[in-house]
Design a protein around this nucleic acid. Structure first.
Lengths: 226, 226
DNA sequence: CGGCTGCTTGAGTGTCTTCAACCATTGTGG
DNA sequence: CCACAATGGTTGAAGACACTCAAGCAGCCG
């Protein structure tokens, strides 16, 4: 899935060529970063690579995931506009990251993080609280993965996504069924069936090849949220 | 499960009576805390409560967990000696915490955390890196919950526990089958069956009412770890 | 000794998966 | 401009893995 280096921006070498494409926002509280355009499916970094940068999403969606040796995949999170991800305690990235669709991100040098948070306290807050939120999301997700039924998983996922996209009751799914499946610990068939079932029950409406979702009965969905 | 307040120490009111019981270690880098003795099953705090303190384990094991409305439980982590837990981004605890067996912890006022990390930089590091480790553990655990088979879950769990207990190949399980089940997203019967199966295959040995475990073939277990 | 708690084991069931076919949409080349 | 391949999604039938229900066992404590 590593995108051809010939495309828009090469994820592996942010510097030079790309730095021109988009200037990073440079307010008082925001340090300088390098803007990157990612094509659909393009890889930002892979598990085990040295973590030189961490990232903030400007637009689009990025998935971070881990693989088992036989190819089973767990997507631990979808990162949306404004989210920060890729900060590591150790030297290496502990998961891989790819753009779900076309996306724009800003890359910040990890090496400068200490100094950076000192010089831009607001940004430091942002990084810290983003890590906290990651942890909280991970904890909620463990409950989902370990103890919720397929239907509850889908209901929770849709409600959560609507909120994070700042949409009330209608939005487009940025990701494929296979992404949703690997995020919720299901198969694509089960995802499809559960969506169909929620639609049959009148809790949601599906359209546009199953990518457009209307939450027609949020209370009903929340009930499934247990 | 909230322990009777008559027992050793009352988890809900650390101050006064308890502060005498054990003095917190007071090195240059470690701020003052209040030492608490917890009886088996005693509750430290509950989901939704105001987070006044966070904790560091001196001895024993503490489980943190979330519940669904119908009682389904997900134990997100077991905390062992040296671990720090209970730090929250918001005002409230986002999960509940109980002692698995008898345990000793030190409680630190959360309100002083900012100042605390400034005055005791070493301790600040400890808190930060402990949060990072929590996040990493959570990410690994999501992979386990979402994509591993029952047998793989048990193998991973045993290897991980041995490492964290600083044991090579023999240790006592501090927790019940029901705790293991709720941590791994299984039932107690499946936990029991998988342990029996690993024993039958010669990868582990069980004794002492199933609480004593010997890892007789770690390579074999690691293979199941995928 | 008897009752309690925790663990094990067996039989049957169900939820989700696997395997497979089919359909819809999109993009490409003749 | 249409044919056709490719990708993504749906639906059905069969199967498997883990769950539920149930009984029995072991260790522990009063």
């Amino acid at each position: 899935m590593r995108a051809a280096l010939a495309t828009v921006a090469t994820a592996k070498t942010p510097p030079a060529a790309v730095i021109m494409q988009g200037a990073a926002p440079r307010s008082a509280n925001e340090p300088q970063g390098v803007s990157l355009r990612l094509a659909k499916g393009e890889e930002l970094f892979a598990e085990g690579e040295t973590a030189e940068y961490f990232y903030k999403i400007i637009s689009g969606t990025v998935r971070t995931y881990k693989l088992l040796s036989d190819g089973r995949r767990q997507i631990d999170a979808f990162h949306l506009a404004g989210d920060i991800f890729g900060i590591e305690a150790g030297a290496e990235h502990r998961f891989s990251a790819e753009a779900v669709g076309n996306a724009t991100v800003v890359a910040y040098r990890r090496s400068g993080l200490d100094r950076l948070t000192r010089e831009h306290p607001g940004f430091g807050q942002q990084v810290m609280s983003s890590m906290m939120r990651s942890l909280e999301r991970a904890q909620d997700h463990m409950l989902l993965l370990g103890r919720k039924t397929a239907q509850e998983k889908i209901a929770t996922f849709l409600l959560d996504l609507a909120e994070r996209l700042h949409e009330h009751d209608h939005f487009e799914l940025p990701m494929l069924r296979s992404d949703i499946a690997d995020h919720l610990g299901l198969t694509i068939e089960t995802v499809s069936r559960m969506l169909a079932e929620l639609a049959r029950k009148g809790l949601i409406e599906l359209a546009a090849g199953g990518r457009s979702v209307v939450l027609s009965n949020k209370a009903g969905l929340r009930f499934l949220n247990a």
